[in-house]
């Protein structure tokens, strides 16, 4: 039985939600004013969080809403990143076009890897995505003429409205907000409802007239497309693309973000992405303060520690709090209302 926890909860708003609109406006104002009040480092981190929110929502569509396990998410981010970077380098297209191109490319590659595995019931998508992780890495590394091999590609600087980093921040945040909204509304449509029905019981979904294979494939490819958009943004933001960015560990990172934030929850994706992006930074700060020895030691110790903590977060949340941070918050708020 699928736990009730994973069913989408839609708040019922009977009257005009003044409080909620005020809340949204306040949030928008904070996001808008944020760069004015904080240093370059915080704007950088906020941009990174927003990009990771997009990627996490993509994985949440696949894993949380449609119940399909993908453990190669970062490979699809890589497809988007390389596509976006190549478009920027060779075609000189504007940022938004590159992002769309990255998303489209990842969507198609997702179809290629999803098609053989989603015909069959069971754990095969997880294995196929693992295969995708390694075969796409192989392509990134070996197709030197196009991808630049291990050295990767360096991407020309994008200057949005002449605002530099801050301009990029606004674009990313706006795009993340738009894609959040799109995902939220998707699950009020026939397609989104079909994904959830599939997750709950695929035979029943089929009886209701849902084409199981087509919708599973669509859910997976859509998740990949979000990954591709996030990848193209990462490429344009960091201005470098290389195979080291798209490892299995990166895929585990996003899986942890989905689980920690809360499966099948948009709010959860945002919380999870923010938590996972900021946690290593805080960890490093703590280690540098109280850790043993110099900075070299910290770096060497940090990467296995991070791996351990990512794994522990996945395990801990699945066992003790399957609804993630979103569920935790919902419960706290619910309690205070009573």
């Amino acid at each position: 039985m699928v736990s009730e926890a994973l069913i989408v909860h839609e708040p019922t708003a009977s009257r005009f939600p003044v409080g909620r609109i005020a809340g949204w406006l306040l949030l928008a104002a904070i996001l808008l004013a944020f760069p004015a009040f904080s240093g370059a480092y915080f704007v950088f981190m906020a941009t990174l969080v927003a990009i990771n929110v997009i990627a996490t929502i993509g994985l949440n569509i696949t894993v949380g809403y449609a119940g399909l396990l993908s453990i190669g998410h970062s490979a699809f981010i890589g497809v988007g990143a390389y596509t976006g970077a190549l478009m920027a380098i060779h075609l000189g297209t504007p940022l938004i076009v590159n992002v769309a191109g990255g998303a489209a490319a990842a969507f198609l590659v997702g179809l290629v890897f999803g098609a053989p595995s989603l015909r069959i019931k069971g754990i095969y998508l997880a294995i196929a995505t693992l295969a995708a992780q390694y075969s796409l890495s192989f392509v990134f590394q070996q197709w030197t003429a196009v991808t630049g091999g291990d050295r990767g590609l360096s991407v020309p600087r994008v200057d949005v409205f002449g605002f530099g980093e801050t301009g990029f921040y606004y674009v990313v945040v706006a795009l993340a907000a738009l894609l959040c909204l799109a995902a939220r509304n998707l699950f009020r449509t026939r397609i989104g409802r079909a994904f959830i029905a599939l997750r709950e019981r695929d035979y029943a979904a089929q009886v209701l007239g849902i084409n199981v294979v087509r919708y599973k494939l669509l859910a997976f490819a859509l998740g990949s497309a979000y990954a591709g958009a996030a990848g193209a943004l990462t490429a344009m933001f960091l201005r470098i693309v290389n195979p080291d960015q798209f490892t299995l560990a990166a895929s585990v990172f996003f899986l942890a973000a989905v689980v920690v934030g809360g499966q099948a929850s948009i709010l959860g994706s945002i919380l999870g992405a923010a938590f996972m992006t900021l946690m290593p930074e805080i960890l490093r700060a703590v280690l540098e303060l109280w850790g043993p020895g110099g900075t070299a030691d910290v770096a060497g110790f940090l990467s296995p520690l991070r791996e351990f903590i990512f794994g522990a977060l996945i395990v801990g949340f699945l066992v003790f709090e399957p609804r993630g941070l979103a569920g935790l918050i919902q419960r706290l708020v619910g309690r205070s209302n009573n």
Binding site: L69, I71, A249, V252, L255, A256, V259, S303, P304, L305, R306, E307, F308, I309, F310, G311, A312, L313, I314, V315, L318, V319
Partner: peptide, 15 residues
Amino acid sequence: MVTLGVGSMIKGASG
């Protein structure tokens, strides 16, 4: 997913 998480934990701890 739990086995994947456990794998990541063992790898990190060994490292």
